[in-house]
C-alpha cells in the first residue's frame, strides 16, 4: 500500500490540535497496514511547525512560501493537487474544520478521488475503506463504504482520535511551490478577531447552557433566574445566537467558546458535535432534555428526561431549599 498523507492545519503561527489527532489516526492506520506516514505542511517560515511535527511521522514535505502564509483553499488546492498527482498517496487526511470543509470536496473532485467528510472512524481492509460518520442531527451513525480506488481522501471530526505521543524521526524535504502568486479569483484580506462582551463564560465555575428547546425569547428569563439561583452564567448553543437572543460570545462550541467549568448544565440542547466540542471538558455535566436519545446524554454524567419547563422551576426551588 502506498503512503498515508496528513495535511497539517495551522493558523496564526499555531499548529491546531486537529493536526495531532490526524497524525495519531494516520500513524495507527500506517502501522496496521505496513505503510508510512507523511505530513504535508504549507506555510511561510514553517521551521517552528516542522520542529513539532518531525517526531510524528516518517516524512515531512514542506512548501514554504509567502503566498501560503494564510490558509486560502484555492491556493492550497493548486499546490496540493500538484503534489497528490505526483505522489499518489493511498489516503489523504484533512481535518473536518472550517479549513478542511472549504478545501477537501474541491480538491478531491478535481483529482477524481473518492472522498467523504466528517469521519469518526476509519477501517482499511483489502485496500478498501469503510468509515463511520453521523447523520440526522447526530442521532444515528452510518457505516459508509467508499468506491474502490487506488487513492482516497477523508476529513476527520475533531476529538475523534485523541492525540498520542510519538518519537519517529522524519526525513524532511523542502519543495518548490508550483505557483508564485495568490490567484486573483480568491484573495485573503485579513482575520477579524471576535469582540469580547460583558461576561466571559470561560471564567465561570458554573455554566447554564440553553438551546433550541427554550422555543421563545420570552422564556429566556426562566433560564436567567435559574442560573442566578445556582450562581452560574447563561451560555447557549448556536440556534440561540442565530436568533439573536444572546450575543455570539455566549456561544459554546467549535465556532464559539470552549469552556471547562466545574458544572455545566445543558438545558434543551440536543448536542450537535460542534456544541459537544465546546463543553466536554466540564468536570460535571448535567443534561435536561425531552428526548432520551439526544446525543447530549452521551456526554452527560447526570440526565433528566423531561420537559424543561416543568423541571427548571422545581429544580430551582430544590436548590434554594438546600443552599
Amino acid at each position: 500500500m502506498s503512503e498515508i498523507f496528513v495535511l497539517i492545519e495551522h493558523r496564526q503561527e499555531e499548529i491546531r490540535d486537529i493536526s495531532f489527532e490526524l497524525l495519531t489516526c494516520g500513524r495507527k492506520l500506517a502501522e496496521e497496514n505496513s505503510s508510512k506516514l507523511t505530513a504535508v505542511i504549507l506555510g511561510f517560515n514553517t521551521e517552528k511547525i516542522v520542529e513539532k511535527i518531525k517526531s510524528e511521522v516518517h516524512r515531512v514535505l514542506i512548501y514554504d512560501n509567502e503566498i501560503l502564509k494564510e490558509f486560502n483553499s484555492e491556493t492550497y488546492q493548486i499546490v496540493l493537487s500538484y503534489l497528490i498527482a505526483k505522489e499518489n498517496p493511498f489516503l489523504f487526511l484533512i481535518g473536518h474544520t472550517a479549513f478542511g470543509m472549504d478545501l477537501c470536496p474541491a480538491l478531491a473532485t478535481q483529482l477524481k478521488i473518492p472522498f467523504t467528510t466528517d469521519c469518526l472512524n476509519i477501517e482499511i481492509s483489502d485496500n478498501k475503506i469503510k468509515v463511520v460518520r453521523q447523520m440526522f442531527d447526530g442521532k444515528l451513525d452510518a457505516k459508509v463504504i467508499l468506491r474502490e480506488n487506488p487513492s482516497y481522501m477523508l476529513t476527520l471530526r475533531a476529538g475523534s482520535f485523541p492525540a498520542t505521543e510519538s518519537n519517529l524521526e522524519a526525513e524532511v524535504s523542502n519543495l518548490d511551490s508550483p505557483i508564485s502568486e495568490e490567484p486573483d479569483y480568491r484573495k485573503f484580506i485579513e482575520y477579524i478577531e471576535a469582540v469580547a462582551g460583558d461576561v466571559d463564560i470561560t471564567k465561570s465555575d458554573i455554566v447554564v447552557g440553553i438551546g433550541r428547546g427554550i422555543k421563545e425569547q420570552d422564556n429566556m428569563t426562566l433560564i436567567e433566574d435559574f442560573a442566578a439561583s445556582i450562581g452560574g452564567v447563561v451560555a447557549c448553543s448556536r440556534p440561540i445566537v442565530d436568533s439573536d437572543w444572546l450575543p455570539k460570545d455566549r456561544q459554546i462550541g467549535s465556532s464559539g467558546k470552549v469552556i471547562k467549568p466545574k458544572l455545566y448544565i445543558a438545558i434543551g440542547i440536543s448536542g450537535a458535535f460542534q456544541h459537544i466540542a465546546g463543553m466536554k471538558g466540564a468536570e460535571t455535566i448535567v443534561a435536561i432534555n425531552r428526548d432520551a436519545n439526544a446525543p447530549i446524554f452521551n456526554e452527560a454524567d447526570y440526565g433528566i428526561v423531561d420537559d424543561l419547563f416543568k423541571v427548571i422551576p422545581i429544580l430551582k426551588e430544590k436548590i434554594l431549599e438546600m443552599k
Partner: peptide, 14 residues
C-alpha cells in the same frame, strides 16, 4: 467566513 473560536476570515472573491 466563520472559523473556529469566533475568528472570521475576510476574503475578496471574483
Amino acid at each position: 467566513r466563520e472559523l473556529e473560536g469566533g475568528l472570521i476570515e475576510h476574503l475578496d472573491i471574483s
